[in-house]
């Protein structure tokens, strides 16, 4: 399998910050993997995702996505990734169809093709009857699903999701997880962050636990559980490795 995402000695320090947010991370995500990046609040997950999305420039290190070096070819890399941000990144006063039509057109998708895709995804995510309803009238779960659709319209090779199931009901969460599995079967590489460790254990083919900007363990869920004698689930291992101290 070829490499989808390559991160080498990645360091990021925010302006005026005392500590580095990402501290010398190196990892590889192969094509077709579902990679879970797990860690407590402030561990460096969102900063890593922001760097991969070309939203912020790293202080140090090299990142490439599908062979595109982010320092030189950020526009090319943006074309092959789809990013589902933690917050709902949609226009609340536009309808779901208007939002998808706008963002799809901004990706340069042809009108007819875009219309088909919008109808297809709205149907899959159970939003087909909400096409003319404004997003501000949606429930939290509906917004999350629409937020995901907006990142899929251009058929990305790599899908990066920052806590896609946060604050949604069990039904919506189940639908999103099932969809991600199906998408991965079709060849899409998925990088995913979550605080739901059981969900990550079931979904991911590979996991890295990050804390204080450093990767403290990585491998398949089975490898990680096997490497920690006396622990039989990811959540207990996570607490052992990252501690029980509350984080900001």
């Amino acid at each position: 399998m070829s490499i989808a995402i390559s991160i080498e000695n990645l360091v990021h320090r925010y302006k005026d910050a005392e500590q580095v947010a990402v501290n010398d991370i190196t990892l590889e995500i192969k094509e077709g993997e579902i990679f879970g990046l797990l860690g407590p609040n402030g561990a460096g997950k969102t900063t890593t995702i922001s760097i991969l999305s070309s939203l912020i420039k790293p202080t140090q290190g090299k990142v490439s996505i599908h062979g595109f070096d982010l320092a030189q070819q950020s526009d090319e890399s943006k074309k092959v990734i789809g990013v589902v941000p933690q917050e709902i990144a949609l226009y609340p006063t536009l309808t779901s169809k208007e939002n998808l039509d706008f963002f799809g057109s901004m990706y340069g998708i042809q009108k007819n093709n875009l219309k088909e895709k919008i109808n297809h995804y709205l149907h899959i995510f159970g939003l087909e009857n909400t096409g003319n309803k404004r997003v501000e009238q949606f429930s939290g779960g509906m917004k999350r699903r629409l937020n995901l659709i907006a990142s899929l319209l251009h058929d990305p090779k790599v899908l990066i999701l920052d806590e896609p199931t946060a604050s949604v009901d069990v039904q919506s969460r189940n639908m999103i997880i099932e969809f991600l599995r199906e998408l991965n079967k079709k060849g899409t590489t998925i990088l995913y962050t979550s605080h739901y460790l059981e969900e990550a254990e079931n979904l991911c083919t590979k996991i890295a636990i990050i804390d204080d900007g450093k990767i403290i363990i990585q491998g398949s869920p089975q490898q990680i559980i096997g490497s920690q004698p006396g622990f039989d689930n990811l959540e207990n291992i996570f607490l052992r490795l990252t501690g029980k101290k509350l984080r900001d």
């Binding site: 090319e76 074309k79 990144a89 963002f103």
Partner: peptide
Amino acid sequence: EGSALRLLLIPGSYMT
């Protein structure tokens, strides 16, 4: 609202 963030994720679309 975050819609500007999504535009930043789409190449060349933010300034447009």
